[in-house]
Computed example of a mutant assay.
Amino acid sequence: MRPAEQSPRPGYTTEFAEEYDRWFGKPRTTGATVTALAALAGDGPVLELGIGTGRIALPLRERGLPVYGVDSSAKMVRQLRAKPLGSEIPVTEGDFADVPVTGRFTLIYLAGGTFGELRDQESQSRCFVRAAGHLETGGVFVLDGHVPEALAAATGPDIVSEGDGHLVLCYRRLDPAVQHYRSHYVIHEDGRTRHLRVDFRYAGCGELDLMAQRAGLRLKERWGDWSGAPFTRDSASHVSVYERP
C-alpha cells in the first residue's frame, strides 16, 4: 500500500468537492478540452483517470461516447453521481496510477493538470505503462501540464475564480530539487478566509516522452493548449498526445 502522504489528489478532494465546478470549471477551457478529446476518441470507449466531478466526462457522454472513470475520492464521485447522466458512467475507485480497470479504450486521458498529482516518477511511469496496456492499437493517451520553465518564471498569484462574495487565488512555489511544486490556494468567501496547500510533481516534455517510449507509446501530437494552438518556445502549458502503434 502506498504511504498516506503519497496518495493522489490530497486535500482538495474533500475541501473542494462541492465547489470544484464553480471555481475551476471555466466554460471556454472545458469546451475546448471536450472538443479536442471527442475528436481523438473515435467511437470510444473512453477512460478518464481522475474523473472527479465529471466536468469533462459528462459532456463527452452527452456526445454519445461510452465513458468510464477512475478516481480515489468518493466525495468527488458523489458530485458526479448527482448530475444528469452521472449515474450512467461506471467509475472505479482507486489509484489512477494503477489504471485499475478491465478492457481496452480508444482514448485514455487526464485533464486539468491531474497527471501531476502523481507525486513521484515511479507512479507517473507506472501510469504510462498501465494506460498503454489498456489502449486499442492506434488508441491515444492524452495529458496536459505546465511547462516547468514557465512555472519557474511565473510571479505573483493567479486569480482562479472571483464573483460576488468570493475570491480564489493560487500561488505556486517550486522545489526544483525534487521536481515538486506546491499550490497555495487562498479562498475568501462569506467573510471567511481559508488556506489550502496541494502538492504536485512536474515533469518536462522530454521526461514525459521517455516515459511514453518505455511504455511502448510514441508522441503523436503536442499542442500549446486544448484549442490546438501550436506548442512553441513561449508556451506555458502543453497537451501531449501519445499513440499506441
Rank of each mutant, 00 (worst) to 15 (best):
L58M: 05
E88S: 15
I56M: 06
T114P: 05
S87Y: 00
T193H: 05
G50H: 04
R119W: 13
E189V: 02
R130K: 13
V168N: 06
E88Y: 04
A57R: 03
G113N: 15
E162R: 12
L60H: 08
G50M: 07
R173K: 09
T30V: 15
D43N: 14
R61K: 10
D234A: 13
G112N: 04
G139C: 01
G145T: 07
S87W: 04
Y20V: 10
G138F: 03
D95T: 01
S227E: 08
G206S: 06
C127F: 09
R63L: 11
L107N: 06
A39Q: 12
L47K: 14
E207V: 09
R182C: 14
F105L: 04
H180E: 13
P176W: 10
T29C: 00
P59G: 06
A203E: 11
G138P: 05
P66W: 07
L49C: 10
D158C: 14
T53K: 09
A82Q: 11
A152Q: 05
Y20C: 12
T13H: 15
G11S: 12
P245V: 03
G133E: 10
F231Q: 01
S235R: 05
Y202S: 02
L167M: 06
G11H: 13
R233P: 00
G206L: 11
G11Y: 12
Y109H: 14
Y68G: 02
G138Q: 07
W226A: 05
V160W: 06
G191Y: 08
G228P: 00
T92A: 15
C127S: 11
W226K: 05
R78W: 11
R130W: 07
G112M: 02
R9A: 14
S240L: 08
S235V: 07
I108R: 04
D209P: 02
Y171Q: 12
E15V: 14
F16W: 15
H238S: 06
S240C: 03
E189Y: 01
A131F: 01
R172L: 03
R119F: 14
G165C: 09
Y171E: 13
